[in-house]
């Protein structure tokens, strides 16, 4: 993965904005930001971000590549879409944030151990196994990510919610034993692989 990063650094030299435009989903919008700051002011998580969206856009223009891609800021986005609704320049800010996170992830320089990133990986892997999300396994995998002791503690804290879901038949304990999958799992995998191939070609990730 990191050789992808080296290649990108090589290819764009000093022009991080151009790199973002070509490789990040909706990245061509970054240059249209007019620095009004409405996105940062609208973000419910704004105060907790190291760099709110307005700053991220400015950093991209200022060529601060490592700081942007290694930042955990865009991983904090909860997709509430407040910024998109309010942006006077109609920038798809939420999508750009996810695009940046995804790009950093693919280059292998996204922050290690960032909870959102870890959960996203867990979710993806879980889903890829059977073509659907196994909620039992996903929950348990998530609780026990930091070892048995921490897992039990976290599970106990959430037991009322879990029991409630069991009662309401929102959680099926039988799914722990393998669980059910898609009818055409092979076809699903082929579809995802094709999508990845197209995206890689578009974004220049083909080796």
């Amino acid at each position: 993965m990191s050789d992808l990063n080296t290649q990108a650094v090589e290819r764009y030299r000093n022009n991080f904005l151009k790199e973002v435009e070509e490789n990040v989903e909706e990245g061509h919008w970054v240059k249209m930001c007019m620095q009004c700051g409405v996105c940062s002011g609208s973000c419910p998580f704004g105060p907790h971000w190291e760099h709110p969206p307005q700053e991220i856009f400015m950093m991209i223009r200022a060529g601060k590549r490592d700081e942007v891609l290694a930042s955990d800021s865009m991983w904090m986005c909860t997709s509430c879409y407040n910024c998109i609704v309010r942006c006077p320049r109609k920038l798809p800010i939420t999508h750009i944030m996810h695009g940046l996170a995804n790009y950093a992830h693919r280059l292998g320089i996204a922050p290690k151990g960032q909870p959102t990133r870890e959960f996203a990986k867990l979710f993806w892997d879980n889903m890829m196994k059977k073509g659907r999300v196994n909620e039992m396994k996903l929950t348990i995998g998530h609780y026990f990510r930091n070892g048995i002791g921490a897992g039990i503690k976290e599970a106990m804290a959430m037991k009322d919610v879990g029991l409630g879901m069991l009662k309401a038949k929102r959680l099926n304990p039988m799914e722990l034993a393998g669980g059910h999958g898609l009818k055409d799992l092979k076809g699903f995998h082929a579809m995802v692989a094709k999508a990845k191939e197209i995206e890689d070609r578009k974004k220049g990730f083909v080796k």
Partner: peptide
């Protein structure tokens, strides 16, 4: 006109 400048890639730094 400003928007057109941004589309053409003029960088604006506050």
């Amino acid at each position: 006109f400003y928007r057109s400048g941004q589309e053409k890639g003029v960088t604006f730094t506050k």
